[in-house]
Design a protein around this nucleic acid. Sequence first.
DNA 1: TTTTGAGTTGTTCGA
DNA 2: GTCGAACAACTCAAA
Length: 452
Amino acid sequence: MAPSSTSILWFRRDLRLNDHPALLAAVARATHVLPVFVLDPRLLDTDKPRSQRLLASLAALSKDMRGALVVRTGDPVDVIPRLAKEVDAAQVHVSRETTPFGRRRDEAVERALAADGRELIATGSPYAVGPGRIVNGTGTPYKVFTPFSKAWRQHGRPAPATRPKRITWLRDDVGSDPLPDAPRMEAGEAAALKRWEAFLHDGLTAYDTERDRPDLDTTSRLSAPLKYGEIHPRTILADIAAHSAGRSTAADAFVTELIWREFYADVLWHHPDSAWHDLRPELSTLPYDSGDETDRLVDAWREGRTGYPMVDAGMRQLLEAGWMHNRVRMITASFLTKDLHVWWPVGARHFLDHLVDGDIASNNHGWQWVAGTGTDASPYFRVFNPVTQGRRFDPHGDYVRRWVPELRHLASGAAHEPWKHDNGYDQGYPRRVVDHDDERKETLARYERARR
DNA sequence: TTTTGAGTTGTTCGA
DNA sequence: GTCGAACAACTCAAA
């Protein structure tokens, strides 16, 4: 190592300093580390909750490294090689990116760096087991979740990476763009670890039985921290294994949810086109609705005025809070695809536009699962009934009353069926835009025709 | 190669 | 109100 040398640590979906293998690699190879984040105008739309959440996380990260974070704006294929030349860094360290966009981008950056005699070195990924690692007996990727999850549980994974004892951030006069102002919201590594600690000790034991209840605060709320890498799943899994609750079925249910995240990343890794195209083309002949009338229905869905309380509560929670409970994501997605007969990418795009945790692999494959076009897809006859789901998972109506003020005058379960009560529409709640029973039959008929 | 069992999250209908 | 069967046929994974 030269008396003084610099490596670059290019942050992306790994906005933390603990359990960060690429940071360790960067520290090991040079005396100084220049931490950088590139604001890519193609990705950063500051109107979007996801971007706001990103900026809040970046502000926290910058603070955690006492202002050493350098921010540059532009296309990384230009920005990173230029910066490497500027500080004469031989190596740029990253956590391996696994999405189609990220992979293309990183390959281009790697080529641009190589042209100047520099290296892009990927260490680790946002997943406990890197996408592509789990394969079945014949060496091909799994297409079904349960066998994947069994193989995943048997597969080894590294222990959490230790935090470097000493990091010397480069503090020369490296120009940095200002970070756009972020709203006040919970973000950053410290908040993520605190939230995880609280959930580990208080929430985990009831997770298997209570997680489906959108009226209760019984989920981990770690989707956004995981999306931005404020905490790594490896840390979570190690803590669960070390904790007495780690041997419970409740903890197991939580681990299974983490494996779903890993599974969908793996599927996207093997099938990059599946981000926006049907994974299974068998149903590509399925007729979807479009046109002005459909546009009006989609608008009603987006704005939470379909007349189905559970659907509207979820869609309004999404718009107001930038987040929706997973159970309600399934209900609203089923409604768009099977009650309104709209192509799933329309809904996937809307979710990505409004979720703070919007993740292309989990979001879009979740949509494909509901639509019946994805891996391990639900059988075609499985159509969610928004009223039944509401009564079952929001038994007292607290969730719908919270997000739909026009239903607050209806007591308990009545809030799920305003049409059954004389005063149901007194506060201006919209009438049902379609009849669920009719549309369910219509969906089954369309699948029947498509299969022939 | 063949066979066999299984496959996140549901709903409806009829007994 | 509760419970089990039906809703199809196919693909996948493993023995």
